[in-house]
Write a protein that binds this DNA or RNA. Structure first.
Length: 424
DNA sequence: GATCCGTGGAT
DNA sequence: TATCCAAGGAT
C-alpha cells in the first residue's frame, strides 16, 4: 500500500500521522521497554518458522497461559511440517482437544500439506505466499512474516487496535472487520524496519498488560507521551467496540446408552460446523413443547416401572431409582419421544432409567447449550445397523477419542453422580 | 459484511 | 450469576 493511500485512509479516519522524528522516538521508547520487560515465552526461544506458526495459530482468540502446555505437546507430537502434514486427523484433533476453535488445527494441517506440495516442505518467506496458506489471515501472515523472517509487515490483532485507538484517538469500531485496514496503515507507518517482529510483539505485550482493556495504566506506560487519549483525558472512550450478540439458548437431550458389554454409544459429529469431527454421546433435540401438558407443572407421577428395570436390567438399582420416578413425573411423557428418536436415528430400543441423569450447561461463542441427560441400556444384540458415525466404545478406550468440553461435562456428571446414585 | 466457530479466566 | 474478554479466519 502506497503512502498516498495511507494518507487517504488517515484523512478519512481523522488521524494525524506523526512526523518522522516522533515515529523514531516512539520505536525507541517501545522497543526499549520491550527489551527490559518482555515475557519469556516458549515461542520466543526459537527462530523456527514452523514453531512460530504453531504458536500464532494457537494464540488466536486464546490466552497465553492456556496455550503454553498445548504448544509443547503439539510440537512434541508433530515436530515439523512433514509430521503434521502426514498425521492422522484424529491425532491432531486430540492434540487440540480443549483448546477450542477446532477448525484451526484442521486448516493448519491443510496448510502443512500445501507447504509439502507447493514449497518442497519449506515454510515460504514471502508474505504474499504465507497469506495464501489455509488458516492464515492478515494477522497471522503479518505475525509470522515479521517474527520468523524479519519482514516489516503489520500484525494487527485486538491488542494493537486497542493501543493504536488510544494513541491516535481513532473512532473506528474495532469489532468491525473493515476497521482493521485503518490500523494496518497506521502500523505500516510506525513499524521499525530493523526489528519488525519485536515491534509487533512489543505492541501486543503492552496491550495485554499496561494498555489492557480494563483498568489500563497509561501513567506508567513507556509510550505515555505518545498517547493522545491519555493527554486529552479521553482514555475511557477508546477503543470503540460494539457489543457482541448474546448466545442463543438451545435445549438438547444427551443420551447415554450402554450395551450388554457395558460399552457406550459414541457418535462422531459431522466434518463441518460446530465441534466438527469430535465425539459425543448422542445428542438429540426433542420438540418437548409438543408434549401435551408438558408446560404444566402439575403432572401426575409416572407409573413406577423401576422395579421392572431393577429386576431385569439394573441389578443394583435401589430406592434411589424409585425416588427418581417421582422426581421426574413427566418422564413417561418424554419417554415416548425419546424412544422414537433413538429408534429412528440409531435403530436401538433401550430400556430407560426413568430419571434425568444430569444437566449440562455450556456456552459457545454464539450458542448456549442446555443438555438434559438420559440413560438407557440396550439389551438386544442387534447392533449391526448402527449409523456410520456411531460406535460402541469401551470406557477404557475413551482416551483415544477427542471430546469437546460439553461431552467431558456429561461424562463427569455420569461418573460422579448418576453412576454413584444408581449403582450403574 | 454478518455470521459462524470454543474455551476458561477475570471481574 | 452475567458479562466481557483473548495474539482471528472462513464463509
Amino acid at each position: 500500500m502506497t503512502n498516498l493511500e495511507h494518507k487517504k485512509i488517515f484523512k478519512a479516519a481523522g488521524i494525524e500521522m506523526w512526523p518522522a522524528e516522533k515515529i523514531q522516538a516512539f520505536r525507541k521508547a517501545l522497543l526499549g521497554w520491550y527489551d527490559k520487560e518482555k515475557r519469556d515465552l516458549p515461542w520466543r526461544r526459537t527462530s523456527d518458522p514452523y514453531s512460530i506458526w504453531v504458536s500464532e495459530i494457537m494464540l488466536q482468540q486464546t490466552r497465553v497461559d492456556t496455550v503454553i502446555p498445548y504448544y509443547h505437546n503439539f510440537l512434541d507430537k508433530f515436530p515439523d511440517i512433514a509430521a503434521l502434514a502426514s498425521a492422522p486427523e484424529d491425532a491432531i484433533l486430540k492434540a487440540w482437544e480443549g483448546l477450542g476453535y477446532y477448525s484451526r488445527v484442521k486448516n493448519m494441517q491443510k496448510a502443512a500439506q500445501q507447504i509439502v506440495a507447493e514449497y518442497d516442505g519449506v515454510f515460504p518467506e514471502d508474505p504474499q505466499e504465507i497469506a495464501k496458506l489455509k488458516g492464515i489471515g492478515p494477522y497471522t501472515a503479518g505475525a509470522v512474516s515479521s517474527i520468523a523472517f524479519q519482514i516489516p509487515e503489520p500484525a494487527v490483532d485486538g491488542n494493537v487496535m486497542r493501543v493504536m485507538s488510544r494513541l491516535f484517538e481513532i473512532d473506528a469500531d474495532i469489532a468491525k472487520p473493515a476497521s482493521r485496514k485503518i490500523f494496518e496503515a497506521v502500523v505500516r507507518e510506525l513499524i521499525d524496519p530493523e526489528r519488525p517482529g519485536d515491534f509487533n510483539q512489543a505492541l501486543m505485550d503492552l496491550g495485554s498488560s499496561i494498555c489492557s482493556p480494563l483498568n489500563p495504566q497509561p501513567e506508567i506506560s513507556p509510550i505515555k507521551d505518545f498517547n493522545a487519549a491519555y493527554k486529552n483525558g479521553t482514555m475511557h472512550l477508546y477503543p470503540v467496540k460494539s457489543k457482541a450478540k448474546r448466545p442463543v439458548p438451545m435445549n438438547l437431550q444427551g443420551i447415554i446408552l450402554q450395551n450388554k458389554e457395558k460399552q457406550f454409544l459414541l457418535e462422531k459429529r459431522p466434518n463441518s460446523g460446530l465441534l466438527a469431527d469430535f465425539w459425543t454421546f448422542p445428542l438429540i433435540q426433542l420438540e418437548l413443547d409438543a408434549i401435551p401438558g408438558s408446560e404444566d407443572a402439575t403432572l401426575e407421577p409416572a407409573t413406577i416401572q423401576t422395579e421392572l428395570l431393577v429386576a431385569e436390567d439394573f441389578p443394583k438399582l435401589t430406592e434411589a431409582a424409585k425416588k427418581a420416578d417421582k422426581k421426574l413425573p413427566s418422564f413417561n411423557q418424554i419417554e415416548a419421544q425419546l424412544s422414537a428418536a433413538v429408534a429412528e436415528k440409531y435403530g436401538l430400543k433401550p430400556v430407560w432409567l426413568k430419571a434425568e441423569t444430569g444437566s449440562v450447561n455450556h456456552v459457545f461463542s454464539h450458542i448456549k447449550w442446555h443438555i438434559t441427560g438420559y440413560y438407557g441400556r440396550v439389551l438386544t444384540n442387534a447392533d449391526s445397523e448402527l449409523p456410520a458415525q456411531c460406535r460402541w466404545v469401551n470406557e477404557e478406550d475413551f482416551a483415544d477419542y477427542a471430546f469437546p468440553v460439553p461431552q467431558q461435562k456429561m461424562w463427569q456428571q455420569f461418573q460422579q453422580q448418576t453412576r454413584k446414585e444408581f449403582g450403574l
